[in-house]
């Protein structure tokens, strides 16, 4: 009786992950979204080189200029260059988005892993998370900002806190199902310590869903920051952000709609493309979504 031969296909799970990301990138919509986001990110990163003027420089003589050679998108009510303000504004927005995603995922992952594995902790932690989820994000953000003053850090904290429960729930549910897997039981029976089981056997299962969740957190954080700025509860008004610019432009909306149009366009483009990329990542990483295509 012969032993079956070894299969020849030789890729690890890591290359499978990158392969599925490649697959996602092959759809035209995803490519457009990626390109779009790349442009927005590049304009924010390279703002000092792109911006023709200092975004903060007031020039009362140049108020509400139409687009021209000196001011490609025109100027606002204080004579500041709109293009410069919009590209600099992207820096705050994207920073808040990225920061909120990273911080909420890091904290949520830690809490979720522990909560998913230890039943007694779980009961307490999940009630706290339920409580946090019941607070409207914008209200919480306004409260935090008005208590401790408007700065990038406080806005980030205010936006991140309401996102944490969503991440915790996600991680917890993955851990709850993964801990029943025989390979986790096998690890227990060869005497693997609990922190190691969490790190080595359970945590890797959460990476794929967290990548997806991260994109959604990022998009919603950018939006929340814009809303806070628009309401005047965000970062101090002299720092340009997309929300600020729109809030100021609102007064002159009838006179000069481009004050709202340009920051609005970039905001929508950024959020839409981040969400589309998130969807693509979800489809690529979740085999069930892929299989649905194959059958009737």
């Amino acid at each position: 009786m012969s032993v079956e031969t070894l299969s020849e296909a030789g890729e690890g799970p890591r290359s499978r992950l990158s392969a599925s990301l490649m697959l996602a990138a092959s759809s035209p919509l995803t490519l457009i979204a990626a390109l779009c986001l790349a442009v927005v990110v590049a304009s924010a990163v390279f703002a000092p080189w792109i911006a023709p003027h200092d975004p903060l420089q007031l020039a009362p003589a140049q108020r509400l200029k139409p687009p021209g050679a000196e001011f490609p998108l025109g100027t606002d009510a204080y004579g500041r260059d709109l293009l410069s303000r919009v590209v600099y504004g992207g820096r705050v927005s994207l920073l808040v988005g990225l920061g909120a995603a990273l911080v909420s995922i890091t904290i949520g992952l830690a809490i979720g892993l522990v909560s998913g594995f230890f039943r007694p902790v779980d009961a307490v932690v999940m009630r706290i998370m339920d409580g946090l989820m019941a607070i409207p994000a914008i209200l919480l953000a306004i409260a935090v900002v008005s208590l401790s003053g408007a700065s990038l850090a406080t806005v980030l904290v205010a936006i991140t806190i309401p996102e944490i429960p969503r991440v915790v729930r996600l991680v917890r549910s993955v851990v709850l199902s993964a801990r029943e897997e025989p390979y986790v039981e096998a690890a227990i029976s060869v005497g693997t310590s609990l922190p190691r089981i969490l790190w080595r056997h359970l945590m890797p299962n959460t990476i794929a869903p967290l990548i997806v969740q991260g994109t959604y957190v990022c998009a919603s954080a950018i939006l929340t920051e814009a809303i806070l700025s628009f309401l005047g509860a965000g970062i101090s008004p002299e720092t340009p952000t997309w929300g600020n610019i729109m809030a100021e432009g609102r007064t002159y909306f009838q006179l000069k709609p481009s004050l709202i149009f340009w920051p609005g366009l970039l905001l929508s483009a950024a959020i839409l493309s981040i969400n589309l990329l998130g969807d693509a990542a979800r489809d690529a990483l979740d085999p069930r979504m892929k299989r649905r295509e194959g059958t009737r």
Partner: peptide, 17 residues
């Protein structure tokens, strides 16, 4: 733990992929 070891039913799920 060392003294008793287990082999599980489903070989597709008992090894961490």
């Amino acid at each position: 733990r060392k003294r008793i070891q287990m082999i599980f039913q489903d070989p597709y799920r008992s090894l961490n992929p």
